[in-house]
Every structure is written in structure tokens, then in C-alpha cells.
């Protein structure tokens, strides 16, 4: 377990809200450059876990390291090295594309020159050069999501947390979005993604499935399918979810 290659290390992570245990003794690690899928039904504790890993919530107990830093004592170092795209849309709707890039680049301490380069790099990649000065509100949701991902990637984080990034997006855009994720992963960024689209789970290198605050299964999609004798991840997921309800 204790290898430098583990960019996220979680031991006995528990989070309680009053008497309710949202997350119960999680143990897992994520390899560097991996696409790690974090699955679970609504209310299974996914969002709580991802928030703890990002430093938005304090765990009740447990030992957690992200990007090689302890989330209790080295919060700021953790924050410098992670990107986060929330369930809710995270760009400012009343600002233009370029203004959003400049703002987020600025809070991560990027220089003006770097910001300019990043803007032209990402807009070129997304083929949105013409929309540089468009107000975010006027853009379709799919574009916004891709822009939000680019903005979250702007400071070259070691790990990026994506909390249901493709919610409400059409299949073509979802496909394109996953291409962006693959590209980022092959460039060495670790991807930690929650989703409830089971087809997306197949794209992940390893998948953990949470049920009622606990991780019930964690392996590659192939091995999980074999283990549960299912022909798709959906089958695996339904077996696990049914077993508990």
C-alpha cells in the first residue's frame, strides 16, 4: 500500500452527521494517472467522500493523504495540487469564457502569460475560439461542462475530482467529455470521478461501488463483471444495490 505511486490513500475514513454515518470505514488507494470510478446510488455517501478528499469537509476519523499530503495538516498543499468540478455548475454565468479562465487562473496564482496560453490552448482544443468573449449563460450546457473541466484543469493539478460531471448532458457530449478525461489521464493527471451512468463506469480503469456508506466492491470493470457473473457494470451494480435493500 505505501508506495509513492498511490496518489490518494484512504485508511478507515468515517464521517458521521450526528448519529447518521454517511461514510463508514473506507479503505482504498488510487494509483497515479489512474481513472478511478466512484459509483453508488444517490445517498450512498459518494459526495460526502469526495468532499472530504477535497478538504471541503473534515472526516470524523481516518487517515487520508491526497497528492502525498495529509489532509489535516497540509490542507493548503493538498488544495494547490487538486482540481475540482462540482455537481453544480461551477463557472460564473454572468462572466465571459475568458473572464472565467482569468479569474480561476488568478486564484491559483498563474501568471498572466500562463493564463493567456492556457486560454488559447483550451479554446483551440474545444474549437471555441470564437466564443472567447461570450457570456457563459448564453452557451449550451455541454459546452459549459467542457469549459468547466478545462478551467478545473488549468493549473495542472495532480488529481482532479469530478463530481457527476456529465449529469444532464447529451450522449455525444458525454463521449467528448470522456475523451478529454482520457487525454488528461494519459498526460499523467489522476482522475477521480463519480457517476451514476453505468456505461461510464466501463471507461474507468478501476471502479469502487458504494452502498450505504461502505465500499462493497472495488476492482477493474472486467474482474467485477466476472466476479458477479454479470455482462455489464449495470448488472454488477444492481446485484450489489439489491442485496442491501
Amino acid at each position: 500500500m505505501h508506495s509513492e505511486e498511490h496518489i490518494i490513500r484512504v485508511e478507515n475514513l468515517t464521517r458521521k452527521f450526528g448519529s447518521f454515518t454517511a461514510v463508514d470505514k473506507l479503505n482504498f488507494y488510487v494509483n497515479k494517472g489512474e481513472i478511478f470510478g466512484f459509483l453508488g446510488a444517490n445517498g450512498a455517501g459518494k459526495t460526502t467522500a469526495i468532499r472530504i478528499l477535497c478538504g471541503l469537509l473534515l472526516p470524523t476519523s481516518g487517515k487520508i493523504e491526497v497528492a502525498g499530503f495529509d489532509i489535516y495538516r497540509q490542507t493548503n498543499k493538498v488544495k494547490q495540487n487538486i482540481g475540482y468540478m462540482s455537481q453544480k455548475f461551477s463557472l460564473y454565468e454572468d462572466m465571459t469564457v475568458a473572464e472565467n479562465f482569468r479569474f480561476y487562473g488568478g486564484i491559483y496564482g498563474l501568471s498572466r502569460k500562463d493564463i493567456r496560453e492556457k486560454i488559447s490552448y483550451y479554446l483551440h482544443k474545444l474549437r471555441l475560439e470564437k466564443k472567447k468573449n461570450a457570456i457563459i449563460k448564453s452557451l449550451p450546457l455541454g459546452w459549459k461542462q467542457k469549459l468547466a473541466f478545462s478551467v478545473a484543469m488549468m493549473h495542472d493539478p495532480k488529481v482532479i475530482f469530478l463530481d457527476e460531471p456529465t449529469g444532464g448532458v447529451d450522449p455525444v457530449t458525454r463521449r467528448q467529455f470522456w475523451e478529454m478525461i482520457y487525454e488528461a489521464a494519459s498526460a499523467g493527471t489522476t482522475i477521480f470521478v463519480t457517476t451514476h451512468y453505468m456505461d461510464e463506469a466501463e471507461y474507468c480503469q478501476r471502479v469502487s461501488i458504494m452502498v450505504d456508506g461502505r465500499i462493497e466492491a472495488l476492482d477493474t470493470p472486467e474482474r467485477l463483471k466476472k466476479q458477479f457473473e454479470a455482462d455489464s457494470m449495470e448488472g454488477v451494480f444492481l446485484q450489489l444495490a439489491r442485496g442491501h435493500s
Partner: peptide, 13 residues
């Protein structure tokens, strides 16, 4: 809007 989360995740204090 959820942008506060993003600000809190950032290194801003």
C-alpha cells in the same frame, strides 16, 4: 450556485 465550493477548494484562504 455552487461556486463557493470551488472557491473553498482553491488555495484561497
Amino acid at each position: 450556485l455552487g461556486t463557493m465550493e470551488v472557491l473553498l477548494v482553491s488555495p484561497l484562504n
